[in-house]
């Protein structure tokens, strides 16, 4: 059993190639900026990483809403929610790190108590809480319900974080790309747009793998119970020679227990 397939392998190779092209364009082909100089190169990573962070938490919110809605309730939505949250948390950490590097170079400090930065840090803390909550609940239904409630709050924080530069007085740069006349041109514009494609592919590859991993974990949990029940049954009955190898193949511990049970029966 594996979380990879020919599709994910193709996606992974494409993502790797796209990131390599992004690095080449971003580091050598794209010229330095007239105002920012070499610092412009952070734009080929940071905005795309931050967008993937939002996309991850957006997927998490979508999965949670669809799970909470009785008509669409399915474990698939819960898997999508956890995949989105976990990948979103990774990209959120990357956003904070790349943003700090930018901050040190542009503002002279690694961190400042700006609305955008603070909300992103809160979002990261919320995502860690979300993931910790999921690990603390064993029952799949309870886990999905509780984590969905927290996911909705994360979605609210994403909206606040996104509009923070418009709603609050903030040091953070306003939108560069998504406006009627973008304030970036030529190779810089091409490279920045490409960074969204490259990191989008990385994001998709990670989400697909995490989704499948969650499905495998669920399968392991459900089949683990069946294996345990079978082993307990084997302990209570004398095991025939034909059946023993099958039990032994399933679980070494249960085979040993079955052998002990058989030995007890023989003693009697």
């Amino acid at each position: 059993m594996s979380s990879s397939s020919s599709l994910t392998r193709a996606l992974g190779i494409s993502a790797l190639a796209a990131v390599a092209v992004n690095a080449w364009w971003g580091l050598s082909l794209s010229p330095p900026d007239k105002v920012q100089g070499q610092l412009v190169r952070i734009l080929y990573v940071h905005p795309a990483v931050a967008t993937m962070c939002y996309a991850g938490f957006g997927l998490c919110a979508l999965g949670s809403i669809c799970w909470l809605w009785p008509r669409t309730r399915s474990p698939r939505w819960d898997r999508l929610a956890v995949a989105g949250a976990e990948v979103g948390a990774v990209f959120c950490a990357a956003t904070l790190i790349t943003g700090s590097i930018w901050g040190k170079a542009a503002w002279g400090v690694w961190w400042t108590w700006d609305a955008r930065l603070t909300l992103t840090a809160i979002l990261f803390a919320l995502s860690l809480g979300y993931l910790a909550l999921r690990r603390a609940v064993d029952n799949p239904h309870s886990r999905a319900l509780m984590s969905s409630a927290v996911a909705l709050l994360m979605a609210l924080t994403v909206v606040l974080d996104h509009y923070a530069t418009a709603w609050f007085a903030t040091l953070h740069q306003h939108t560069t790309l998504f406006k009627p006349s973008p304030s970036i041109h030529g190779w810089q514009l091409v490279t920045m747009c490409w960074s969204f494609v490259a990191l989008g592919l990385v994001f998709a590859w990670m989400v697909v793998h995490r989704y499948r991993l969650e499905a495998l974990e669920e399968r392991y949990e459900s089949e683990g119970y069946l294996v345990a029940i079978e082993a307990r049954r084997a302990e209570g009955q004398p095991v025939s020679a034909a059946a023993r190898p099958e039990t032994g193949r399933v679980l070494v511990g249960s085979a040993a227990s079955a052998e002990r049970a058989e030995a007890l029966v023989e003693d009697k």
Binding site: T118, I122, A125, L126, L128, G129, A132, L133, A136, V137, M146, A149, V150, L153
Partner: peptide
């Protein structure tokens, strides 16, 4: 209420609640 029946509730509650209450503190 979310954490009441969970095994790591003593540590989970501060982790979940502190970022939520950050806007109130501010």
């Amino acid at each position: 209420a979310l954490c009441v029946g969970l095994r790591a509730r003593e540590t989970l509650l501060p982790l979940l609640l502190s970022p939520v209450l950050a806007p109130v503190v501010l």
